[in-house]
Structure formats: structure tokens, C-alpha cells
Design a protein around this nucleic acid. Structure first.
Length: 313
DNA sequence: AAACGATTCAACCGCAAATGC
DNA sequence: GGCATTTGCGGTTGAATCGTT
């Protein structure tokens, strides 16, 4: 006997979220932290199911999300990780802390699949013309060995990531990673800080809210609007400044973010947010807590992934 | 300028795993 | 240990947007 779906109740709203709803949700999470999604609709008065609230938060409103074009570097990592992990988008997303699994999945389905298909075609055409099949079989053993090495390295990286003693903090992609140090021309300005991007989200949200102010503010969200708007204003100005300089200390940003949102949900001490997370997901959280003890030796992993570009393409 | 097809991406759905009692 | 509930994940859908004719 299966349980009834959570969203089949009468009066549950579906479809795109409005800025109003976003603000109500963000306000609530600002106060209570993410988690206990079951209680969110009842406590906020949102006519959404818990699932929808969680999804909205994790895929759109959550701090640290980078939106917009994927860099070459990100693209290559996705391709590699997909080859290695398959369609385990959450696991792949854990290596790209600023992207959501949904984003990566969409990007794969809309861009990368086609791109790879095209490349495969070009390669196979070229190899056909050259009588390439022999050398192809000749490379097979090599390829298998490489795959084994890949898997071995992935396991090693993962186990290192999970060991709490490792001191090297993965605080900022661009900082800790030599490969990303301007090695790709396209990683330029899109590599914004997590704080900036979250502020962008919120700024965008606020912009929409300003454009279409609600006729009457909800009473249940009004209580938080003052504090929320104050922090919003900070977010917007901070966003503008950090965007302008295009750098900014990750540490500083995450601290600013913490103070901005005033909750410690991303801290490991918060039992509401961490218990059921996989190692990957736990790492994913770390985007906003650069000081945490268990950090992924990201540069090593990323180096490994990006080193293979030459072979892959 | 309008119609149409292609593309994108936010959101939904259903299943499975995790958690609580 | 067994059941009920909650959460997380991956596949899919469909409305909005873009590009072409």
C-alpha cells in the first residue's frame, strides 16, 4: 500500500513561484533554518507542498548558487564526472558546489549531450576515413587501464575528502585550485563568489518584488519583512560591490552571508540540516562554510579531472 | 508582424532511501 | 524488526523564450 502523494491535496498551488512566495519562504528559512519541510507550508501559510518548498529552496533560493552560463572548466568537469559516475547528478553537483543537480542535469540534457554527440560523430567520421579501427582496438587496453586508474583516484579522493584530519580547506574554487587560476579564458567573470551569487538571487527576487508589489502584505510574513528587507538591502549593496571587484575573500563573503541570514544552518552543528546527507551532499554544503573541518582536496581532484581534457577532447 | 518550431529551464512526479517511532 | 513518514534523487513535463521563415 503506497502512501498518497504529498501534492494531491486540494488547494495546493502548483506552477512557478511568485516573488511574494519566495520572500515568505526565505524569511521563514532565515528564522528557522532549512529542514523540517513538512512544517514549512503550515507555518508560512504558503499554499505549496513541502516538497515544492524544499525544491524551490535547494534549486533557486539557497545561498551559494551560481546561475548563468557554465564555464569551460565546469563543462569539462561535468563531462568527466558524468562519464565516471553516470547520471548521478547530485554526486556530480557535489563537485561543482555552486551548481545545483537540477542545473547540471538540465545543462547536460540540453547542451552537453548534443555537443558530445556531435564530437563523437566527427571523430567517428574522421576515423572511418583514416581506417582508424585498428588503432582504436589497439587503444582499448590503454583506455581500460585509464578507467581503472580513474576509479582508483576517485576513490582515493573521496576517502581523503571524508577524513576529517585533512587541513587543506576548500574555501574557494579559484583560490585553492591552480587549474582554475586563469588557466581557462572562459572562466573569467562567471566565477563569482557564492555570496555574490546568492545575493544576486535575492536581489533579483527583491527587484521582482519591487516591480510588482503585493496589494496587501501577508500578515504572517509581515513580521519578518523589516529585518528581512534590511538584510536584503545589505545583500544588494554588497552584491554590487563584490560583483564589481570580481574577487573578494570567500571567507569574508561567507561570514557576511552568515550574518546576513543570521542562522547557522550550514554549520555542522545544526542537526536539522546535516543528518541525512550523503558525503557528497555534506561536501556540497561546505560551499558556505569554508572553515569546516572536513574538506575535499578539491584542487587534486579538479586537477585530475581537468588534466584529462587533452585526452578527452 | 505573425506564425511556427526549437530550445531552455523551473517545477513536478514517482520511486527509493533514510529516519523516527 | 516493522511500519509510517520524511527527505533526496533522477526522469520528465510544459510554459516561457528565442530564432527562423
Amino acid at each position: 500500500m503506497g502512501r498518497p502523494p504529498c501534492c494531491d491535496k486540494e488547494g495546493v498551488k502548483k506552477g512557478p513561484w511568485t516573488p511574494e512566495e519566495d520572500i515568505v519562504l526565505v524569511s521563514y528559512i532565515q528564522e528557522h533554518g532549512p529542514g523540517n519541510w513538512r512544517a514549512v507550508p503550515t507555518n508560512t501559510g504558503l499554499l505549496r507542498c513541502s516538497k515544492s518548498c524544499r525544491l524551490r529552496w535547494t534549486n533557486y533560493l539557497r545561498p551559494g548558487i551560481k546561475r548563468g552560463n557554465f564555464t569551460d572548466q565546469e563543462e569539462k568537469m561535468i563531462i568527466h564526472l558524468q562519464a565516471l559516475l553516470g547520471n548521478r547528478w547530485a554526486a556530480i553537483a557535489s563537485y561543482l558546489p555552486q551548481r545545483t543537480d537540477n542545473d547540471i542535469k538540465n545543462y547536460w540534457n540540453t547542451h552537453l549531450k548534443k555537443k558530445l554527440k556531435k564530437q563523437m560523430q566527427t571523430v567517428s567520421e574522421a576515423s572511418f576515413g583514416n581506417g582508424f579501427s585498428d588503432s582504436q582496438t589497439m587503444h582499448r587496453g590503454q583506455w581500460e587501464r585509464r578507467l581503472q586508474t580513474d576509479i582508483h583516484m576517485a576513490k582515493r579522493a573521496l576517502s581523503e575528502a571524508l577524513s576529517p584530519e585533512k587541513e587543506k580547506p576548500y574555501s574557494c574554487l579559484s583560490d585553492s585550485n591552480p587549474a582554475s587560476n586563469g588557466s581557462t579564458s572562459s572562466s573569467k567573470s562567471t566565477q563569482s563568489s557564492s555570496y555574490a551569487s546568492s545575493a544576486e538571487n535575492i536581489a533579483r527576487l527583491l527587484k521582482g518584488w519591487m516591480k510588482n508589489p503585493p496589494k496587501a502584505a501577508r500578515s504572517n510574513s509581515a513580521m519578518t519583512h523589516n529585518s528581512f528587507n534590511n538584510t536584503m538591502a545589505t545583500a544588494v549593496t554588497d552584491s554590487a560591490s563584490s560583483e564589481g571587484t570580481e574577487k573578494g575573500n570567500c571567507m569574508e563573503l561567507s561570514e557576511t552571508f552568515e550574518s546576513l541570514f543570521g542562522f547557522e544552518s550550514l554549520d555542522s552543528s545544526n542537526s536539522e540540516f546535516s543528518p541525512s546527507l550523503s558525503p557528497e551532499a555534506t561536501f556540497f554544503q561546505d560551499e558556505s562554510k569554508p572553515d569546516s573541518g572536513s574538506e575535499m582536496p578539491f584542487s587534486m581532484l579538479e586537477e585530475w579531472l581537468l588534466d584529462e581534457d587533452a585526452h578527452f577532447f
